[in-house]
Design a protein around this nucleic acid. Sequence first.
DNA 1: CTCCCGATAT
DNA 2: ATATCAGGAG
Length: 212
Amino acid sequence: MQQSVINKASKFLEVLDRKYPDATCSLRYNSAFELLVATILSAQCTDERVNKVTKVLFERYKTVQDFANIDIDELRNIIKPTGFYNNKAANIKNIALTLLNEYDGRIPENIDELTKLPGVGRKTANVILGNCFTPQGIVVDTHVKRVCRRIGLTKNETPEKIEQDLLKLIPKDKWNRFSHQTILFGRNICTARKPKCEICEMATLCHFYRGA
DNA sequence: CTCCCGATAT
DNA sequence: ATATCAGGAG
């Protein structure tokens, strides 16, 4: 591994800790199951909008059993503002049924079983693991991908390969923290449309900034 | 690769 | 008008 990439990573960790000393999950939830539902809703949608929807949703439906019995049309209506509502509604109900039938109503605690649930991919599974169980991965969402590629922590394109690169660069005890901080950095500074390079502390080390 | 898909910033 | 938002399945 190149020394320059290692230097960038440690500099980036330094900046993140200074800017976001107490970064946590921005989705609101009171259980692993609620976080699972919220994370599914967050696909291609801002977490702010998800929180508005889940506020209503979690008031009406509390338990896994409640979601297993839910009227699919009502669920569709409640979650409509998050987009992809047909898929998301079906997935959420099917997950609740699967959890009751195969897992005694509990959430599996490993990535292989989590990703077998309908509508749960690697990113969603890592969110659950990182926030609810022993941290076992780094979340590579659209923000983490964009930021790490721009800074030059990875040249890879797929979330899985990017995750592998980051797992080697970031100390294990910081994985979940790094995910939250990098997402905040991507939302506030290194935005997709008009990145605020003028105020970015990574600009001097950034490949993207120097115009590549 | 395409499709799912509403809301917002640019 | 278009890109983008805590993606995943076929």
